[in-house]
């Protein structure tokens, strides 16, 4: 839930990167942390195992001044993707304002992608939320691999709804598409506070296929 502090003129928004194990959620935050220059950024914190698998969450705080008179603080979290950590995913989703669902473009990861997407919807319900309430974007990651799943297939599988979500092609490992994805979801979140956007500042995502 967004928090507005009128004393400090600050809006705090929580964005969660969700997806199956090893799809690139942590890589998104690592590349954002190393690549962002002008935005005031905090330290990247990772609660990971010795093998660099996310155990609890990764956290990165970014501060911008997009809305006149207010600082906007985006709090970016990832969830652990491994199926066994479902309770942890439910905890990290608490108070979420926006979601980036990261899809792994490997063919052999499709089943895990679909399970993770279904798991996201279940865990939102556990938090008394739904996909209809929470702004979200889809990131089709690892587009640089050989023979990735075609975009029309990913669109049919993950974005076949009456209201289609913004989608972004990415190769997070190479830093491609990570900033565009974050800006896409950030625009969706800030649109509700902007008179000119009228709640519809979706953006320059690529409705693929």
């Amino acid at each position: 839930m967004a928090f507005i502090n009128y004393s400090k003129r600050e809006i705090q928004l929580k964005i969660v990167y969700y997806g199956c194990a090893l799809c690139g959620k942590t890589t998104n935050l690592v590349k954002l942390h190393s690549g962002i220059n002008s935005t005031q950024k905090g330290e990247l914190v990772s609660l990971a195992t010795d093998a660099d698998r996310t155990l609890f969450f990764d956290f990165l705080s970014l501060n911008t001044q997009t809305l006149p008179g207010f600082d906007t603080r985006f709090q970016l979290y990832t969830v652990p993707g491994q199926p066994v950590y479902n309770t942890t995913r439910q905890l990290v989703l608490k108070g979420v304002d926006g979601i980036v669902f990261v899809v792994d473009s490997h063919w052999d990861k499709m089943e895990e992608n679909v399970e993770s997407f279904a798991n996201l919807q279940e865990n939102l319900i556990e938090n008394h939320l739904s996909m209809a309430q929470i702004p979200y974007v889809l990131q089709y990651n690892k587009r640089d691999i050989e023979n990735p799943a075609p975009l029309h297939y990913l669109e049919f599988t993950f974005n076949n709804r009456a209201t289609r979500a913004l989608t972004f092609e990415a190769s997070a490992y190479n830093g491609e598409g990570v900033l565009e994805t974050l800006n896409g979801v950030a625009r969706l979140l800030l649109a509700k506070y902007s008179k000119s956007a009228g709640g519809k500042a979706g953006g320059a995502g690529k409705p693929a296929a």
């Binding site: 997009t66 800006n183 902007s194 000119s196």
Partner: peptide, 17 residues
């Protein structure tokens, strides 16, 4: 009242750069 501010936010605005 819900917070609403005057801003130039559009579909092309880069909020984070």
């Amino acid at each position: 009242e819900p917070l609403q501010v005057d801003s130039e936010l559009s579909g092309e605005t880069n909020i984070i750069s």
